[in-house]
């Protein structure tokens, strides 16, 4: 799985990085964004809703940083 490292990056940079990563995916593939920006917890899901992509869920990277997983579905 491709992982995009957005540690230390404020909003909207994690969502911009997510959008760029998803545009390179084949339909059905997933990408994860690692981001400590608190806005990312809301904005990754909002992006998926607005762009009709699937929000798979959240877990944490090895260092405890939140990680958000998204699947390209369209």
């Amino acid at each position: 799985m491709i992982e995009v490292d957005c540690r230390g990056k404020p909003c909207p940079l994690p969502v911009i990085a997510l959008a760029a990563a998803v545009s390179d995916l084949a339909v059905g593939d997933v990408v994860s964004v690692v981001a400590d920006d608190p806005a990312a917890a809301v904005d990754v899901q909002a992006w998926c809703r607005m762009k009709a992509q699937e929000y798979v869920g959240a877990d944490t990277a090895e260092d405890g940083t939140p990680r958000y997983v998204v699947r390209r579905v369209s």
Binding site: P10, C11, V15, P38, A39, V42, D43, Q45, A46, M50
Partner: peptide, 24 residues
């Protein structure tokens, strides 16, 4: 209600509770 600067890191709790986009 955005919080993309160093001074205010937590986005609007209203937008977050609604699942609305918080940046921009």
């Amino acid at each position: 209600g955005s919080a993309c600067t160093a001074s205010t890191l937590t986005p609007s709790h209203v937008l977050a509770a609604m699942g609305a986009l918080t940046h921009g």
